Amino acid sequence: MRNLSIRKYLRNKIGWMYLISGGLLLGTSLLGLFYSSVAVPVPVILHIILEKTFNIGWLEMVPKNEEMIIWNIRLPRVLLGFCIGASLALAGAAFQGLLRNPLADPYTIGVSSGASLGAVLVLFFQFTIVGLGSFTLPFVAILFGLISLLVVFGLVHLSSKSLAIETIILAGIIVSAFIGAIVSLIISLSDRDSMTQIIYWLYGSVGMRGWSHVQLILPFMLIGSFILFYHYRELNALALGEEAADHIGVDVKKGKTFVLIGASLLTGAAVAVSGSIGFVGLVIPHLVRLVTGPNHRHVLPLSLIIGGAFLILADLMARTIIAPKELPIGVITALIGAPVFAFLLIRERLGRGIRR
Rank of each mutant, 00 (worst) to 15 (best):
M1E: 13
R2E: 14
I6F: 06
R7K: 13
W16E: 08
M17I: 06
Y18V: 05
G23Y: 07
S36I: 03
V44W: 00
L46H: 03
I49V: 14
K52M: 04
I56V: 14
W58H: 06
K64V: 10
E66L: 09
E66G: 00
I69W: 08
N72K: 13
P76N: 12
C83H: 05
A86N: 02
L90H: 04
A94F: 02
Q96V: 00
G118A: 05
G118V: 04
G118P: 03
V120I: 11
L121Y: 06
S134W: 02
F139A: 14
L146G: 08
F153G: 08
G154T: 13
E166M: 06
V183P: 03
V183I: 15
L185I: 14
I187N: 13
M195E: 13
Y200H: 13
L202D: 04
L202P: 01
G204T: 00
V206A: 08
V206I: 15
R209W: 10
R209Y: 08
V214I: 13
F220W: 15
F220S: 09
L222H: 11
I223H: 09
S225N: 10
F226S: 15
Y230C: 12
L240Y: 11
H247D: 09
K254Y: 12
K256V: 01
T257H: 11
G262T: 09
S274R: 05
F279K: 02
L282D: 06
I284P: 03
P294Y: 04
N295S: 11
R297M: 12
G308W: 01
A314F: 01
A314Y: 00
I322V: 15
E326G: 03
G330T: 02
P339K: 02
A342G: 10
L344S: 04
R347C: 00
E348Q: 13
